[in-house]
Nucleic acid binder design. Structure first.
Lengths: 136, 136
DNA sequence: ATTAAAAGTGCGATTTTTTGCATGATTGAA
DNA sequence: TTCAATCATGCAAAAAATCGCACTTTTAAT
């Protein structure tokens, strides 16, 4: 995920966008909220407004550079969209996120949608719990 | 779901709470947001503040009278908690919600969590698509 | 019925997220 | 390079969601 991906998406290459992409790259195991990203930017001395962070993330979502998730915390969190579909295990204590794919579940989802007469466009499965590290 | 359920939850029986429960009862096929409920209250002439609606819904959630969902629209929506776990098919056009349970998916979820060393506390599966009615 | 304790409500203030607008930066063509 | 067109940004203002506090209402014991 780099500047040429921005270009492809019809977005100009600007400091806020490059920095935000970098931050998302470095946090692949931990999905970040807009506020998280804003804090990280501030701490590294970048003078980027919170409004810009929200705006950029929304644009990235539209451009399919990132995926927005609505975990049960309330606010949205974001991760880079690497094109490979997956579901999530979310630790409710530390926020750690693990990804998984289960073909059987995928298959059954399709079947459920079909049975109900739905034309499936998307789906999201989140399993919440306490991760290994937090159990100790 | 009635006044005695409020009592059991340690909540006093007040007009806002009773009215909000009634509204949720009548909208079982369509999950409502706080704003939706506020609008319905206003239209039926009740002078209940938006803050109260948010507060009551949060209390209901804590009391396990309602379940809060984070569908992809962004804001939370609520449904009565009738005690039977289920997942959701959500129509992205009309907001219609259908419930389903698939034992195979349930089983696989447990297995996935276990394999990852997670102690599962909860899970949510939403399938988004166009419902039968909206396809015509 | 009366009443005191506890809990709930509405209002306004606060926080969180989004938007509008004037200024400033990026881009590709000359 | 330079320049004009276009798009982005920051700020302040607006919406959306939440919280604090003074005032009511509910409750259940009398």
């Amino acid at each position: 995920m780099n500047n040429s991906d921005l270009k492809k998406a019809g977005l100009k290459i600007t400091l806020p966008r490059v920095k935000i992409l970098e931050i998302l790259e470095k946090a692949r195991d931990r999905h970040l909220s807009a506020e998280d990203i804003y804090t990280i930017l501030n701490e590294s001395g970048e003078e980027i407004g919170l409004a810009t962070v929200y705006r950029v993330l929304t644009q990235f979502e539209e451009a399919k550079l990132v995926i927005r998730h609505h975990f049960s915390e309330g606010h949205s969190v974001f991760e880079l969209d690497l094109g490979t579909h997956h579901d999530h295990l979310v630790c409710v204590k530390c926020g750690h996120v693990e990804e998984f794919v289960d073909e059987l579940i995928e298959k059954r989802q399709k079947a459920v949608a079909e049975n109900a007469g739905f034309c499936m466009t998307d789906h999201s499965l989140n399993i919440y719990g306490i991760c290994k590290a937090c159990q100790m």
